[in-house]
Each structure stands twice: as structure tokens, then as C-alpha cells.
Write a protein that binds this DNA or RNA. Structure first.
Lengths: 331, 331
DNA sequence: TAACTCTGAGAGAGCGCTCTCTCATCGTTC
DNA sequence: GAACGATGAGAGAGCGCTCTCTCAGAGTTA
């Protein structure tokens, strides 16, 4: 019981394989009567084109690799952004009739695997997500002469188009807000400094404090809740008099809120807290979190558009999306 | 500048294409000297096999579809389980050298698309995740004569192997715990009743209450935080004297905690709360959430093993994983 | 030495499709 | 009425690979 081939369809419709192929591919140079006969044969036989055969000759695969490159330790965390980015990108790509091949690149071994796969011509394009500093993947992939875009500015200077949000500006607005609401000792919990988002948000924090001649108080986390909790304890130990903290992402802010609670500090009374990202959970913390909205959805969608534009040889300028301060109760 | 073919490798190594193919596929019937020559040629040319050509003849694709079937409304939510399941399954499949093709099936249109894709022989097997009640996909896919496994018991009775956790037993243990700790009026926030997890957890709740002759107090949510918050308000309105609530998942429990806080109820003093899933966020709620641990990681890994076993014509019995009550501060 | 087995390598078919080239047919124009 | 361009359909090559079949040559046995 084999799957029917184009040959079978052609035979049944009483035409040549070439004509059947024309109908399948929607060419207009087929007389209506014949087209109908072919369509009927396709329907009766339940014909579905064999993609391997097709892409063997067309040299296209209609699939896109979505490469998520992360340090192995973070692979299994429940990152809410991961889910949103993956889903949005999938939906957008599907509406462009592209398949999504998901690849996790954490170990060196899986890096090699990804490279081999892409080099193997399995995909028409690549989306690179969430890479950390010394990630060799952007450079490696860009060498492969396959259209590629990056979610977030690559940490190594490599010439691939990307979509990012305004991390520096977002952080600046958060810290400026804290300053303007009368906070004096503003600390920060920075993200991992081998990630651009970590670096840039710290830069934003420093920019504002420098301009106002205030001392910066920095602890570094790794964007997980737990690291946020640890970093907050650290900060309270280093400077018990701090009255505000800008946390580089909401997940760490959740951890920080818990540490503050445990230390008996009231939020926002004693310490104001501002996060970054505006994940759904931010509305449900106690108190609800003031945060910088990171347009994850738009960023993912823009990334897909950028890649599709690349296929059409369109312009491929980096896109930077604006952020917005969402004021709730924590600051 | 085209990619080198096997032909080119063979020519360079001074052998036939057949021999080169033997080396590439690791057959042992090649003399060591010749094998080395071929390997050298492969290396020098940077040869990577063309997968389309290969699967055209082998009829295998080495890729697996990971189909996530959800009502459109929930597609963009930041579901922490989604992320864990997808990642675990990916990692496991990659170590078996399978590609992961991610497909979102929310609309009827995308359902058709998924079916067409699978029928098109693009994948060697299918993993179906998170389908809701009237989902036609399990039945449709099982008709396609492609190996398929399901994450969670399919809602429609269809004969495909699945991996699930003991939803009924988990819910029972949670409610029994509430009962044993002296709670009298135990309500529940159920999940969507068109999902097996929603049904089964409600069944567990009812089983225990029936045995103890207590009245059940039920509100229904859809597994989102917001629905949990709404349902909790509803419950407090329906029965202000309730002193415990079993919430069918942690996300809704987070919402419920917020509503309780807003209503001035203390947790666990006035109302005890038990969730289900044990997502990471459960440790960070105020107070930390007592919950039933759902072995997401193991479940995803077991699903992959089940599918791989299917390829080997191995046994394909459903797997039910045990749950465990994790006691924190909310009950 | 002849007949045999075994091993290693090549020839060539064919997987299912697309696409160029060719050609028959028909309508149009002068 | 002959020459011409459109138009629609078929023939056939070839995409890159695997795998069966075949066979040369070396080793083994009587």
C-alpha cells in the first residue's frame, strides 16, 4: 500500500506527468477541463507530493531552523519568553508556509550538529535565538551562506541582521523613574554579562546614575528567579540602606521580591522594585511588579519578517523596538 | 559555488560512487586504505550528504513532528509546561539523531496543514501534545499509519500509546491532605473540562469528597492565571465560609492567591490552597505553594522513548507516572 | 592445478519530482 | 490561403543518493 505518485495521478487523469505537475503547482497554462480532471484524480487517490523528491530538484526545503542557543544549565528552565518567542515565530512562519525545525544548541556537540544540519542544506534559513557571549554559532552560521537573522543583537560583532528591543533605553527609563520618585540609593541586579541584554540593561542603569552623580550598587544574576533571590540578599548585605532596585528581568525580580519579604522589607515602602520584560507573572506578584515592557511578540514577528525579506533579497537592516515603562505597585 | 556531491568525493578519492556511499554510511566492507582516502576527500571537499536525495531513496526523513494542539486563545500564553515539554523532547530526540519539526495546530486551517504535512511523509513519527477534548487530530493522525504517541491521554478514545501522569491520584492526595489537616469546606478550581487533565483532577477531588460525605464546591477555569483569579472570586462569592481550595494547576493557583489577598483572606490561615504541577513559580508565590508535583520532565522523556520503541516495533503500552504532594506553606 | 568460496569494489537502476525543450493545434493577420 | 504567433501539452533529462546485482581477484581446498 504505497503512497500514490504524480505518475499515478497523471495516468488516472489521462495526461502526462508534466501536466499533472503543472496543476499541482498552480500554473495557469492548463486548460480548465484538464485541470479539473487532474484535481479529481488527486482527490480520488489522496495524492500528496513527496517533499524529498521536490526539494531534490527545486533546491528548496521550505523549512527554517529555529536555533535556540543557551548554556546547558539554562536549557531546562521554564523561561516564559522562550515559549512566547517560539510560538510567535512558529505561527508567523506557518502562515508563510514554512516549516519550523527546532534545534537546541547547548553543548559543543549540539553546536556541531546544528552546523552540520544547516550546512547540509536541510533548511532555507536560520533564526538564531538567545545566544550568550562567546557563542560561536552566529559567526559559524553566517559563514554558511544561508540567510540568517538573530533574535537580539549578537554578542560577537558579526554581520547578521537582528531584531532587538531598546535595552539601554528601557533600563534608563526605569532608573530615571526611580530617581524621579525620590529614591536615593538605587541598586541593580544585572543579568549575565555575557549576554547582550545583560550588558545593555546594566549600561542603561549606569548611564542614568552617572548623570546624577550617584553611586552604583551592582549584583549579578543569571536571569533565573533563584539568582534574583540570591543577588537581592547580597545587595541587602552590601548596602542595607538601599531604597530601590532595578532588576534586569522579571524572573529575577520575582526572586528579589521574595528575598525582600524574607528580610522584612516592605515593597514599595522600604524598597522600590522595577523589573524588565513584563512577563505575565508580573501582574501576579505581591505587590504587582512595575516593569519595562519588552515587546517579545513584536520582536519575534519582526524577526520572521526580516528573514522572509532576506529571501526576497529585500533590505535587511537591524530593527530596534521601543520599550515602555509599565507602572504597577512595586515602585 | 555548489555543494560537493558524492560523485565529487568519489572522483577525488578515485573510487566509485557506491564505495564512497559505503564509507559515508559506515559499512564495514571497505578496505581501510580506501576508506581513508574517501574520508580525506570528504574532509577536503567539506562534503555533507544531501538529505533530500537520501530520504528520497531510503523513505526515511529522520525527523519527528512535535504537534502542539491548543485552542487559539491559549497559543500565546506563557505556559511554563510548554517550554519544559518542548525542550525535554527536543533534547531527547536530538540524542537519538532525530530532527524536531514543531507544528502548532490551533485553527482548523492549521489542523489541515498538519495532516497534510504528516500524510506527505515529511516525518517518521508524530508526538501529539496537549490536545483538548473535541480535538480531531489524534484520530486523524492515527489513521495516517504513521507512528504516533500522545503527551497525556487523548480525550477521544483512540488507540494511540500515550504517557500521562496520575491526575486522579494526585488530586486525591491533595484533597485528602486538606481533609486530614482539618479543613471542612474544600472547594476546587477545575481546569477546562474538555481536557483530560481538567476532568481527571476534578474526578480526584470528587472521589475524596464523596467518600467523606462532603459537599463539593466547584468553579471552572481554563488553566490560566487570570481564570484562576476570576474563579476564586466566584468561589468566595458562592461560599464565603470555604476554608480550603484545591486548584487544578499552579498557574490558576497564582491567580487564586491574588484574589484571596485582594479579598483580605489569609493563606493558609483562613484558606488553604493546594495547586497542581509544581512549576518553578510555585516556590516564589506568597506564601510558597503546596502543590502536586507533575513529573513533566519524565513524562516528556518517556514519550520520546515510547515513540522510539515504536520504530523498533517494540511494545507500546501507555505509561502512567506517579505524582507527589509537595508541601510548602500555602496548606 | 582446477574448482570452489569469500571479499571488496563498480555499474546502473531508480526513488518522485520539476522544468526545459519541443511540438501539435488553433486562431490571427496580410 | 499562406505564414505567423500564441497556447497548451508531452518527452525526457536530471536532481543526489542508496542498494542490488555483478564480477574481478585473492585465498582455500582436494
Amino acid at each position: 500500500m504505497k503512497r500514490p505518485t504524480l505518475e499515478a495521478v497523471a495516468a488516472r487523469a489521462g495526461v502526462s506527468r508534466a501536466t499533472a505537475s503543472r496543476v499541482v503547482n498552480g500554473q495557469t497554462t492548463v486548460a480548465p477541463g484538464i485541470r479539473d480532471a487532474v484535481l479529481r484524480a488527486i482527490d480520488e487517490l489522496g495524492y500528496v507530493p513527496n517533499s524529498a523528491a521536490r526539494s531534490l530538484v527545486t533546491q528548496r526545503t521550505d523549512s527554517i531552523a529555529l536555533v535556540v542557543s543557551e548554556p546547558p544549565t539554562r536549557v531546562f528552565s521554564e523561561d516564559p519568553l522562550f515559549s512566547t518567542v517560539i510560538r510567535t515565530a512558529s505561527v508567523e512562519l506557518e502562515s508563510a508556509d514554512k516549516q519550523v525545525v527546532l534545534m537546541l544548541a547547548s553543548s559543543a556537540k549540539s553546536h556541531a550538529r546544528v552546523e552540520r544540519y544547516i550546512a547540509g542544506g536541510h533548511v532555507d534559513g536560520v533564526m538564531l535565538i538567545s545566544m550568550h557571549g562567546a557563542d560561536p554559532l552566529p559567526a559559524a552560521v553566517s559563514r554558511l551562506r544561508v540567510p540568517v537573522v538573530s533574535y537580539g543583537r549578537p554578542a560577537v560583532p558579526v554581520d547578521i541582521p537582528f531584531v532587538d528591543n531598546d535595552n539601554v533605553g528601557g533600563a534608563e527609563s526605569a532608573v530615571r523613574y526611580l530617581l524621579e520618585s525620590g529614591r536615593r540609593r538605587i541598586a541593580t541586579i544585572a543579568g549575565p554579562l555575557d549576554m547582550i541584554a545583560g550588558q545593555d540593561r546594566l549600561t542603561g542603569y549606569r548611564n542614568v546614575l552617572r548623570d546624577s552623580d550617584r553611586r552604583s550598587i551592582v549584583a549579578v544574576g543569571d536571569f533565573t528567579r533563584e539568582s534574583g533571590a540570591t543577588a537581592m540578599r547580597q545587595l541587602l548585605h552590601d548596602d542595607p540602606a538601599l531604597d530601590a532596585v532595578f532588576v534586569a528581568n522579571d524572573l529575577m525580580a520575582v526572586g528579589a521580591l521574595q528575598s525582600l519579604r524574607q528580610a522584612g522589607r516592605r515593597v514599595p515602602g522600604d524598597v522600590a522594585v522595577v523589573g524588565f520584560d513584563d512577563i505575565e507573572a508580573a501582574k501576579y506578584t505581591e505587590p504587582p511588579l512595575t516593569t519595562v515592557k519588552h515587546p517579545v511578540f513584536e520582536q519575534a514577528a519582526a524577526m520572521v519578517r526580516l528573514l522572509l525579506a532576506l529571501f526576497e533579497n529585500g533590505p535587511a537592516d537591524p530593527v530596534i523596538l521601543p520599550t515602555e515603562l509599565i507602572i504597577r505597585d512595586s515602585a
